[in-house]
Simulated scan of single mutants.
Amino acid sequence: MRRRAVLLGSCVLLVVAVLASLAIGSNPLGPAEMWRGLVAPDGGEAATIVWDLRMPRTLLGLVVGAALATAGVLLQALTRNPLAEPRVLGLSAGAALGVVTAIAVFDVGTLAG
């Protein structure tokens, strides 16, 4: 019973976070304006903001969050350690070595490099 309550609470928090992500930005939209732009896009400013700017950001955040959660679960299952983290297998040190090597050897100085 407790597990269901936690799962339901987590789902409610996820929905609230998604709606907040669609409403909050440099041009804040009110709840009614955001909802109207979301469910009945009429080509107006609110619909353009919600669908063209904020929806891709929100979906990308959901996908990245799911990928990080999956990576964490796989790492914990692989090591059979519920407290496992990337430093356990040296992943953080390996990533740092790759960045330093790219900067020092290949003269990479930008993010695109």
Rank of each mutant, 00 (worst) to 15 (best):
R87N: 10
L89S: 02
A40R: 13
L78C: 05
G43S: 10
Q76Y: 03
L74P: 02
T79F: 02
V100M: 05
G98L: 13
A47W: 03
L60W: 08
L78N: 04
V50C: 11
V99K: 01
L60D: 06
A66E: 04
R57L: 12
V99F: 10
G43C: 10
P56R: 15
P82W: 12
A69K: 01
M55C: 03
D52R: 09
L62K: 11
E85Q: 12
A95M: 14
V73M: 11
G43H: 03
G43V: 12
V64P: 02
G94R: 03
A69T: 05
L59S: 05
A96L: 15
A71Y: 04
P82E: 12
P82H: 09
G44L: 07
W51P: 00
L53M: 13
A66H: 00
L97C: 11
V88L: 12
V99P: 00
R54L: 10
I49D: 08
G90K: 05
L62W: 02
I49S: 09
S92Y: 04
V64C: 02
T48R: 11
A84S: 14
L91T: 11
L97A: 15
V63N: 00
A84T: 14
V63C: 02
A96F: 08
G44W: 02
E45A: 15
A67W: 04
G72P: 00
G94D: 14
L68M: 14
